[in-house]
Design a protein around this nucleic acid. Structure first.
Lengths: 257, 257
DNA sequence: TAGCGCAACTGGCTCAAGCCAGCTGTTGAC
DNA sequence: GTCAACAGCTGGCTTGAGCCAGTTGCGCTA
């Protein structure tokens, strides 16, 4: 074991020692790590090497650098959960259909939702395919942002074929922009018979790094949600993108049918 | 826009141009990127700077370095899906309870499963909490690996309280190591009444990078699966860890109850 | 012909130095 | 008392050099 440690390149070794300190609790959430120059001196290496070590911790999501200030421990813990209500008929009758709920776990965090835009666009290929649309058919696009303490946590982009919305009370952009879109579907007499969800994770795009003001090096979870009607036809697709460090997805559903 | 590009540091600019080439399709999956020394000469920068640029692409999961060979484009697309059968009573009666299925999407990929170990251990805190166990109570631990073309794709570690297994046909390690554990529970008369799943994503630990032979910089999806009996008591917890670049989670379930 | 060994490539990692840019607390002028 | 300027910290990024360690293909030898 020790042998293995010795064999490691200095940058990895420094990173490992810092990681161990964090795991032991010697360094807690928000604590400042030694500076690059400090580490370099302490381990008798070049500043670049110390810098590399801190870079490793950042890539692991354990630390976050702030230009001009320092590098700080950043423990990932879920601040927010997005989950699914259990699909019992009772729950549906009582509360209406609300497939998603967002809970803010940390005390004092105030959640809020903001609809940034409702427009008509050509859907991305991925969405068109899931909605079974031919090329050229347009969709209504609704972009929703979820905040906790004014910190952006999640984006949801909903796509609905114009054919579904046309001539309905949902046709008004103002109406579409307000409240739970799933409740709207219920009102509209569009019962959701089945839901298909695909979850994946990836590194954020540069835009997402900016938009979610997240540290680079932390992945995002992408959830592609498709609502199907009784005939198995998809009539709505929503792509949720959320920071993987602050969110957990929480499913709790009965096995019985 | 151009202005903004000019302002970028060289490493970012090089990374951006390579990224654009990949997005345009000039560089396809598996294609070799220019070498560090080549890029450095082409952009008249230090090799370190070119190296940094390639590092950015790797962190984004767009490329993967192979020591001594080169850096190669690596487009992320799901090769494998892990999903859930629909929970209709019919499906259960016909096929037995098999909550998970793994599909290999790409032609020619041959999947196989391997049980690496069945041992008795102290459960991790996270697991003990979910199983409602007191400190000191032991669990049976079963470690399962999932491969496609002998490439490790996913690990599943199942924890079952010894009390559940004791005196049952499952007590034999050999029995526990074979086949679907969910089928075993069915046989055992342990009906799964409810399933709770928590999905999150994070950067892999160094061990996972090695074990899943994955490129650093690509996140893993972690799925914590808890089986509950009719009384809401948890009797099994499985932690799945899978490469986020090769897996999609695919849920398809009825809303009706 | 089979196989060994070497040369020429690849990335991995480090060094020591330097300049730039952001943050913060101190100091001093008004 | 206010506020602007500055010094001294922080990380961001680059340079150009060097050594090490995998990989691969070529050519020579047995």
């Amino acid at each position: 074991m020790n042998d293995q440690q010795e064999r490691q390149p200095p940058s990895r070794r420094i990173a490992e020692e810092l990681r161990a300190a964090i795991m032991r609790g010697d360094l807690g959430d928000g604590d400042q790590l030694p500076s690059e120059r400090d580490l370099a001196a302490r381990y008798a290496t070049a500043r670049n090497t110390a810098r590399e070590a801190l870079g490793i911790l950042q890539a692991e999501g354990l630390a976050q650098a702030q230009h001009g200030r320092g590098v700080f421990v950043r423990l990932r813990r879920p601040l927010m959960r997005m989950g699914r209500d259990r699909y019992s008929r009772r729950a549906r009758n009582e509360t209406g259909l609300s497939p998603f709920r967002i809970e803010v776990e940390r005390q004092g965090r105030t959640p809020h939702t903001e609809c940034r835009s409702v427009t008509t666009v050509q859907p991305p290929a991925e969405v068109a395919q899931r909605l079974g649309l031919d090329a050229g058919q347009e969709v209504v696009r609704r972009e929703n942002w979820y905040f906790a303490d004014d910190e952006p946590m999640q984006v949801g982009v909903t796509y609905i074929p114009t054919a579904v919305v046309e001539g309905s009370p949902l046709a008004s952009a103002k109406k579409l922009g307000r409240g739970s879109i799933y409740q709207r579907f219920e009102d509209l007499g569009y019962p959701i018979a089945r839901i298909r969800e695909e979850v994946s994770a990836r590194m954020p795009t540069p835009d997402e790094v900016k938009g979610l003001s997240m540290p680079p090096g932390v992945p995002v979870i992408e959830l592609l949600h498709t609502s199907l009607d009784g005939d198995g036809r998809a009539f709505e697709v929503t792509r949720f993108v959320m920071r993987a460090d602050v969110n957990g997805l929480d499913y709790n559903m009965p096995v019985e049918d």
